[in-house]
Simulated assay, not measured.
Amino acid sequence: MAKQELLEKIQGIEILPGSAIYDEIHLLKANNEQLLMKMNGEYHSPKEIRMYLEEITGKILDESVEVSQPFYTDFGKHTSFGKHIFINQNVTFVDLGGIEIEDHVLIGPMCRIITVNHLVDPKKRRGLSVAAVKIKENAWLGANVTILPGVTVGKNAIVAADATVTKDVPDNVIVAGSPATIIKEISY
């Protein structure tokens, strides 16, 4: 199944263990883990890292994208990168639900962008649901930020270090805390 087709198929559904789609996801995840081990197992130049990420995502990356090692993504195929992006070390993308990183985004060390959740019903707890995350142009995620499923971080927004973002962040604001709340508007 094509990656875009898979992404569209899993939006808004419960993905239950034992289902064909659940098994397919875990097979693709295992293949991605092999590539990540090769990429993170030793030092690679920025160009080599982009080459690995192109294989992991199945998309061409602009030469202006900089990703520090180690970088982790559990699925890999549902992430897209714009231009002039900097991602610091020890960042994790759980991207089964889709992650879009627009141009000029900065992502601090140890950030986590999560698009997958387990189900609330205890009988289905090992099942999954997904919701896409979008980080808009010129946003900045400080160190150790967590972005949860379904969130959009607005254009020029800043997410302060250690924040947990549970709902959309408007354009041109600074948010902080857990859950993150607006602490300041950015004027320019």
Rank of each mutant, 00 (worst) to 15 (best):
D162M: 13
E42A: 14
I21D: 07
R50H: 06
G18Y: 10
K155D: 03
V65I: 10
G76R: 02
I182L: 02
A143Q: 03
H118E: 09
L27R: 15
T73C: 12
P109C: 07
Y188S: 06
E5M: 08
L106N: 14
P109A: 11
D121W: 11
K167G: 02
S178G: 08
V130N: 03
K47Y: 11
Y188W: 03
V169L: 05
V145M: 11
E48R: 14
R125I: 07
G108I: 05
G41L: 13
L148E: 09
G41W: 14
L61E: 05
M51T: 10
A139T: 13
E14K: 15
R50W: 04
H26S: 05
F75P: 04
K136N: 13
M110K: 12
D171H: 08
E55K: 15
E24I: 07
D23N: 15
Q11M: 11
S178C: 14
I113V: 15
V175N: 01
I114D: 03
T164Y: 00
L61G: 05
I147M: 07
N172L: 04
P17E: 04
C111I: 03
D95N: 06
Y52N: 03
Q69D: 04
A30H: 12
Y188K: 07
L96S: 08
D162R: 07
A160C: 13
T146N: 12
E24K: 14
V120W: 12
K38S: 13
I101T: 01
F93Y: 10
D168W: 10
D121T: 07
H104Q: 14
A20K: 15
F86I: 06
E185P: 00
E185R: 05
I60V: 15
R50I: 04
N90F: 06
N172D: 15
I99K: 05
P149W: 04
T115Q: 02
E66K: 13
N90P: 00
I101E: 02
I174N: 03
E54A: 11
V65Q: 02
G58H: 05
A30G: 07
G150K: 01
A163Y: 02
G177N: 01
V173P: 03
S129V: 11
Y22I: 10
I25M: 10
H44K: 14
N88P: 00
T166L: 02
D162N: 15
Y72K: 09
Q4H: 10
D103C: 09
W140H: 07
L28Y: 12
V173W: 10
L53Y: 03
V91I: 05
M51I: 06
I99G: 01
Y188V: 01
S178Y: 08
K9H: 06
S178M: 13
V120R: 14
I183H: 04
I114E: 00
K29W: 12
H104E: 15
I174K: 06
Q11G: 04
I114S: 00
V165N: 00
N138L: 02
E102D: 14
V116N: 01
